[in-house]
Amino acid sequence: MPKIDVEHLSRLAQIGLEGEELSELYENLDQIMRMVDQMREIDTTEVEPLAHPLDANQQLRSDVQTEEIDRELNQAMAPLIEDGFYIVPRVVD
């Protein structure tokens, strides 16, 4: 089993792990993936993956506006709002 790059994963997942927690999570992940690796023993050649428990068709909605938007309510629990905009630290494109 290859060594898991927890730092890379935490960057992908945008979780700023630090110090002890990082090494602890590495231990955990290593242990979990060792358990997971028992899957390798199962022969799955010619088995179709199952993404969803029901073999059903997707239900669609008709093209009508059903939502009335209450911005004030939606933004009541927002951390930082300015003139109706959500505000984050400056991003450079």
Binding site: L9, S10, A13, Q14, I15, L29, I32, P89
Partner: peptide, 26 residues
């Protein structure tokens, strides 16, 4: 922005949640 993401998510989620997120990301 990246500081906002990384610290908010690190401080806002507990250990088990982080374990599962990282397992799934992997």
């Amino acid at each position: 922005l990246s500081d906002l993401y990384q610290r908010s998510r690190n401080e806002g989620f507990g250990k088990e949640v982080k374990r599962r997120i990282l397992t799934g990301t992997y």
